[in-house]
Write a protein that binds this DNA or RNA. Sequence first.
DNA 1: AGCTAATCGAGACGGTACGTCACGTCTTTAG
DNA 2: CTAAAGACGTGACGTACCGTCTCGATTAGCT
Lengths: 200, 200, 200, 200
Amino acid sequence: MSETRSPDSKRRSERSRRAILDAALELVGELGYPRLTIEAIAGRAGVGKQTIYRWWPSKAAVLLDAFIALGEEAAAGEHEIPNTGDLEADLKFVLRATVDELNSPEYELPARALAAEGVINAELGAEFVAKLLEPQLQLYVKRLLAAQDAGQVAEHIDPRVALELIVAPLAHRWLLRTLPLTHEYADTVVEYALRGLSPR
Amino acid sequence: MSETRSPDSKRRSERSRRAILDAALELVGELGYPRLTIEAIAGRAGVGKQTIYRWWPSKAAVLLDAFIALGEEAAAGEHEIPNTGDLEADLKFVLRATVDELNSPEYELPARALAAEGVINAELGAEFVAKLLEPQLQLYVKRLLAAQDAGQVAEHIDPRVALELIVAPLAHRWLLRTLPLTHEYADTVVEYALRGLSPR
Amino acid sequence: MSETRSPDSKRRSERSRRAILDAALELVGELGYPRLTIEAIAGRAGVGKQTIYRWWPSKAAVLLDAFIALGEEAAAGEHEIPNTGDLEADLKFVLRATVDELNSPEYELPARALAAEGVINAELGAEFVAKLLEPQLQLYVKRLLAAQDAGQVAEHIDPRVALELIVAPLAHRWLLRTLPLTHEYADTVVEYALRGLSPR
Amino acid sequence: MSETRSPDSKRRSERSRRAILDAALELVGELGYPRLTIEAIAGRAGVGKQTIYRWWPSKAAVLLDAFIALGEEAAAGEHEIPNTGDLEADLKFVLRATVDELNSPEYELPARALAAEGVINAELGAEFVAKLLEPQLQLYVKRLLAAQDAGQVAEHIDPRVALELIVAPLAHRWLLRTLPLTHEYADTVVEYALRGLSPR
DNA sequence: AGCTAATCGAGACGGTACGTCACGTCTTTAG
DNA sequence: CTAAAGACGTGACGTACCGTCTCGATTAGCT
């Protein structure tokens, strides 16, 4: 039950924390993930290396926190999937926005860096999924349950699986760059998937 | 038209090439990708470092070639997707095998390493897709076209997109470890997707 | 006035400095100068290579410092040339000792290494001369001036040149190994030279 | 009595030999000795590395041969020390010429390289002395013997030692760069030394 | 004059060391 | 008394050369 050398988070300098997170995001954009180094982050942030090592176990963890902070700013009003009653239109709307975000240059480098690290590093991957991905996916679950209530999705369908039919193809194209990721593709995926989910 | 200092491949030592590829696969299994080093590969293979740098630009490229070589051995009889006339059964059969392969420990580490590297490194990713992934996906295209001919898949469906509804969810679970990747999940994905693809 | 990225010598580890110097002397004795490597010095000293590169520009510079440190220990009572009133005897005494030192195996290898490096590398040569050689030579100047005062050396003789007539032949035989370097040779050189320096 | 793999010098390519020697001299002038490499010599000479390794044991040996070849060209009429009857004038004449040669930039780098290597490498040093230095020194012995016959040098003087009093100080200044090597210095050394050698 | 064996240019190979970079830890120093 | 600054031991990087070893393609010297 010995308390092994854990830093006192009450005394933590918020100024340093922000500077580190900002520096990490800037640098990953400039250099890419593999050439990003803790020393460079410390230098850019005007911080001692130890201040980073005290609070994060790896550069991936720093980047994850930086990304989460980025998300929290953006999501002041945590977006829901709209419910106009037209499931197909609502999904197309959200997925087109997702396509645009994935294709936007400022998200691309840090997002790829984290995704790739999560593929290899199970622990970081779990945190990535828990903190960033799964909350997003739950929005789809919620919307699909509403559709099920409205009789637009067959009863025996498991929404957690259903959403993957819709979301995974986009992720696949983005991660592996097999073919271009376009609005048209998003629409087509929604159409094909929804045919399978609707009653009858 | 600049002749970029390229070594003479006629004089290349086949013995060294094999030793390097074998060592790379062994070591990525033992150490994982991030702790895999060129020096260790050279040491294990009984080869000078320069011999690696002469023929490959990075450890990821070595691993890709190692994986391709592995694939070529396995694929003496290049697997097709069976066609028993029952599309659903055929797909479930193949995807269950894929699930088993993805869950097998000897494929996992090198495959994740390559996938992750491909996510970050566009050039290597393109090669990964072209040499390993796309040939596999084309087998699905072929089987779906046959199904279309047999009237089991609606005419307006684009097989290249359709296959992604089936394959991407499995890839998604494997890459991001959101939820367990099981035979049951594969079956469910096939069922949901096929409902959307079949005529009417 | 450019501040060239220089480390902070106040924080320098004295323990590492000594270990490096000691290791360098040991190794040059065991391996000879051309087979002496920075890596081996670092290894023997239990020190990172960077710690050597941080403070010295080359292995020759390390060896020079090691040699200087050696000299400082030996020269607790900084040797003077004795003055018994008999210049010839005093010189013979000192030169015989020099011959013995030059012929002793523990001084030979590092001393040759430094001398040779100084022959090629003007900068290091200048430091070698300034820190090790010239102080020695000034002892001869001092003794010759005393002899001049005592009327044993002609007034018009320049002591700085005169000493070279005595010292250079020994250095020549030692450096180039033309003929053996013996006590008898030292005596003969003193005799020939002193005939030229005495009045009349 | 086994004949171990010695190349047949009758079949040796004279063209290659010259190209190698020329390239070595050029490169040592451009790069200095430590940065001179066998590979660079081979490249510049348009020759395979093996052709160098077949005929020479080290880069020092190549350079020595190159220097000897250089000497042989210059010394078509192998210079003698003049004998005008005035020993002092004759020595000053020759030594002033030596000073000029030692100070000339084209001889300096290769000559220092060889001298330095000879200081460290006993075997090469011996060859350097035997082939280049000692023949020169013997010219002094010859001239001093003639002076002894003419009664200008005392009978008990050993010419082989005497010459070193004259030559070694110049060599010393050149090798170690203690002080400038000038005509005046050469003259002074001759004067001081000759006072000691003359009868009385 | 043709054969044949050695030398030749070329350069891949297994190695060693280079000098640099970044790691994660530890120490010193200035605010 | 807390951090920044940065020196430290460690270890991998990618490069440069080492000296050895095949490769054809010329040469020569001998038959």
